[in-house]
Write a protein that binds this DNA or RNA. Structure first.
Lengths: 157, 157
DNA sequence: TCCCTTCATGCAAAAAAATAGCATCGAACT
DNA sequence: AGTTCGATGCTATTTTTTTGCATGAAGGGA
């Protein structure tokens, strides 16, 4: 089984792009768009799901309408490089719902966090009362998002 | 019209959370989950869509299976602060499919870009042949993503 | 307190959409 | 040429969503 290397033709790519933009497009709509019958759209979609190419479907919410007015990126540097510290910090990440995503980067053992908060005060509390008090965190640098000139474009397929 | 301030009760919140995790859950499944009839689920969902709280639905793809093995964050600093430069750079962003998202941050006039590339060479080319050659770009700093310990969690509702 | 409006709700019917069955077509290979 | 295999479209079936409608609970006057 080599799920990894499924053959994608142009129609598959177009379908993936369309579904990245609007996962609720009906078979009929996609059918018109791709010049393919609705049933075949469904079969291809199913194939792409089973191959693991499509990992799932998600609703995208408007942060502003949820009262999440402050978006920030927080760079966190850990003091020591023990696996314990990393694990402990990772556990912390998973418990905080305002931390939407976290990445580890090349170079120093540091994390980049993407955070949504209702206001600056909450962000501040997150930084000082949650992150900085963690035993393995040595430095924190946060940047507030002003604007998002390009947002969540589909992956290039 | 104050779309902004729709009342959300606990059921709405649970529904939003569920749809952020799996937008393809059927009314029946959500019905069991939230102790609500399928029709009512549908009506609430429609209300949340019309209110603009749900902005849309998207398929989530597996970057690795698409051959996008390198993920990076690129910080870009612009030389001058004229609106022309910003606009020109924004236009550049929109033309590059490997740039998935871009944010402007507080502080200096700089951008944070999230990028997916098939390999390091492509990333390198993006940086040197696309970003650095742009007239208003003064500095570029890129960090490669090693791991994503927390990924695309639902927004806290 | 009583009445009235409003709105969320569940059930059932209708409409829409996804899925499965089936025969056909075309490309690749023998 | 013959054969196999997979992709395709059409149709039938099933599943899901949406709509119509009556009920009941909550809130607002008089």
């Amino acid at each position: 089984m080599q799920k990894n290397s499924i053959e994608l033709d142009e129609t598959d790519r177009a379908l993936l792009t369309a579904l990245q933009k609007n996962a609720y497009a009906t078979g009929q709509e996609l059918s018109d768009m791709l010049n393919l019958s609705a049933s075949q759209i469904g079969r291809r979609r199913q194939r792409l799901e089973e191959a693991g190419l499509i990992m799932g479907y998600r609703a995208r919410l408007d942060p502003a309408r949820l009262g999440l007015d402050v978006q920030a990126f927080v760079q966190v540097q850990l003091a020591r490089h023990g696996s314990d510290e990393g694990a402990s910090f990772t556990r912390l990440l998973s418990t905080r719902p305002e931390i939407i995503s976290a990445w580890t980067m090349t170079g120093e053992a540091d994390y980049l966090l993407r955070v949504f908060c209702p206001d600056l005060q909450t962000l501040n509390r997150l930084i000082h009362e949650v992150l900085l008090v963690h035993r393995s965190v040595s430095r924190v640098h946060s940047q507030i998002v002003m604007d998002q000139p390009k947002g969540d474009a589909p992956l290039p397929v």
